[in-house]
Amino acid sequence: MKTIGLIGGMSAESTTVYYQALNRLARERLGGIHSAELVIRSVDFAPIAALQAADDWAATGAILAGHAQALEAAGAEAILICANTMHLNYDQVAAGVGAPVIHIGDATAEALKARGVTKTLLLGTRYTMEKPFYAERLAAMGIETAIPEKAERERLHAIIYEELIVGVIKPASQAQVLAMIRAGLAAGCDGVAFACTEIGLLLDVDAMPAPTVDTAIAHCEAAMDFALG
């Protein structure tokens, strides 16, 4: 089994999902009491979030590239950036290491295609929904995207940053995001991408009214494919 390096902490809540999912997948695929070979660098998210808000993505990229290099030095044979938004820095991170950096968008596109989705509602932070880096990655793999209206995008961003990343789950927020999903499906989407690694903490992917991909889980599945390939 190859060793996977995780750049986590963005947020710590969803990094827990990565740790649990990767170990579950190792156990399911290998049987017995197998678990995943992992190295983790968990960053302090507050400075990262401040740089995001300041639109200083060069600075966030330098920070993540440094963490990737540390993971590689510690034995990581592939690296995961455990956050959708921070894939805005994918090229900078990938350029800084020799190990492959497994892109969450690629894993998401493959999972959507496996479910027969051709146009997905993209739910995530404001950065992920509004900046082109994520939609373009999916488009290159044949998946069209749509996003909620502006007021809904602002509300979803607030739910993520004010609630989910600090472990708060509110029924009212669940209802609001589900309403966004129903509106997106009514507008022509045939699937949903939880393109924020915390949304799977809020809603049950298997209970959605259309084929839905939890990007954190898809990312972990792609990583385990690599680790055992």
Rank of each mutant, 00 (worst) to 15 (best):
G116T: 05
A95C: 13
Y90H: 12
R115I: 01
A83Y: 08
D106E: 10
Y90A: 10
V101T: 08
A114V: 14
L123D: 08
L112C: 06
A99N: 12
G98A: 15
I81N: 06
A111E: 03
G116M: 05
A94D: 11
D91S: 11
L88I: 12
D91P: 14
Q92L: 12
N84S: 00
K113N: 11
L80H: 04
R115M: 10
G124R: 05
A83H: 04
L122A: 04
D106G: 10
P100Q: 14
H103S: 13
T118W: 03
R126L: 10
R115D: 06
G124C: 07
G105R: 05
D91M: 06
M86S: 11
P100G: 15
Y90M: 03
G124A: 05
A95P: 14
L122E: 03
V117D: 03
T125Q: 15
A99Q: 14
I104C: 01
P100V: 10
T125W: 10
V97F: 12
A95K: 15
Y90F: 10
P100A: 13
V101E: 09
N89C: 14
T108A: 11
G98C: 09
I81V: 15
L80M: 07
I81Q: 03
A111M: 05
V97S: 15
K119C: 01
A107Y: 02
I102A: 08
N89K: 04
I104G: 04
L112R: 00
I102V: 15
L88E: 06
A99I: 12
Q92F: 03
T108Y: 01
L112I: 02
A83E: 12
A109R: 00
N89Q: 14
A111Y: 02
T118Q: 10
G96C: 08
N89I: 04
R115W: 07
G98Y: 15
G98P: 12
R126I: 13
L123W: 11
A83C: 14
L121W: 06
L123A: 09
V93L: 09
R115A: 15
A109C: 02
P100Y: 13
A83R: 05
C82H: 08
T125V: 15
V93D: 07
